[in-house]
Computed example of a mutant assay.
Amino acid sequence: MAWVTLLLAGVLEAVWATALGKSHGFTRLAPSLIFVVALVLSMLGLAHATRTLPASTAYAVWVGIGASLTVAYAMITGSESASALKIAFVAGIVVCVTGLHLVSQS
């Protein structure tokens, strides 16, 4: 259950990171509110996951999920350019996060 919570918290990290960019320095209300709600829920999920998982592993996985999804969303929506190297590096993050999960299971 901790891994599912951590996955959801990582997704929420991508939500708040994206909302932060769209808030234009907290001058736009809707993205600012989404940022605050997603940030709080993401942190609560990370904190809950660290009850079972080592904090170092949970944090690395949380950041990796959030960073990968944030970059992928930006490339898909066209707000950031896509390139083969960028995609390869994001895939590398995903492989490393998966590796941390597998190693933690053993």
Rank of each mutant, 00 (worst) to 15 (best):
A2E: 15
L33V: 15
K86Y: 01
G64C: 05
S81Y: 04
I87F: 05
A9T: 14
E80C: 02
L85G: 01
V71K: 08
I87Y: 00
L69Q: 05
A38S: 12
A82G: 07
V97D: 06
L102D: 01
M1P: 15
V40Y: 04
V71N: 03
G92H: 02
V36P: 08
G99P: 09
L41T: 05
A82Y: 03
T70K: 06
A82P: 02
A88R: 03
V94N: 00
L85Q: 10
G78M: 10
G78R: 10
L102A: 13
L33N: 05
L20W: 12
T27N: 14
L20C: 11
V63R: 07
A82F: 08
A74E: 02
T77D: 13
T70R: 07
A19E: 12
V97P: 07
R51D: 10
P31G: 09
A49G: 08
T50N: 02
T57E: 03
T27A: 15
I76L: 15
G10V: 11
L20G: 13
Q105M: 11
V4L: 15
P31W: 12
A47G: 12
S42D: 08
L20N: 13
V63G: 01
S42C: 07
G21S: 10
A84T: 13
A60F: 00
A74K: 09
L85E: 05
A19T: 09
C96F: 15
T70V: 04
T18N: 14
V37H: 05
L69A: 02
L69D: 04
V36Y: 04
W3M: 13
G92N: 06
L6F: 13
A74I: 03
A30M: 15
A49I: 00
T5A: 13
L44Q: 13
W62G: 04
A74D: 02
A91G: 05
M75K: 02
C96G: 02
F26P: 08
L12R: 10
A9M: 08
S81M: 05
F89H: 00
V97E: 00
L46I: 09
Q105R: 15
L20T: 14
E80F: 07
V90W: 06
A84S: 06
W62N: 08
V97K: 00
F35S: 06
K86N: 06
A91R: 02
G45H: 06
V94K: 02
F35I: 06
F26M: 09
V15L: 11
A9V: 14
S68F: 06
A2S: 15
L53W: 08
L29P: 03
L20A: 15
T5D: 04
S68R: 00
L85D: 01
L46E: 11
A91I: 03
S106T: 01
H101W: 07
G64M: 03
G66D: 04
E13W: 07
V11Y: 11
V71D: 00
G66C: 03
T70F: 09
A60G: 03
W3H: 12
G45A: 09
V63P: 00
L85M: 10
S81V: 01
A38F: 10
V95T: 01
V94G: 02
V11F: 15
Q105G: 10
I76C: 05
I34T: 12
A58L: 05
H48Y: 11
I87H: 00
V95A: 12
T70A: 13
V63L: 10
E80N: 01
P54C: 01
A88G: 09
H48D: 10
V11G: 11
T18F: 14
V36K: 04
M1R: 14
I65K: 03
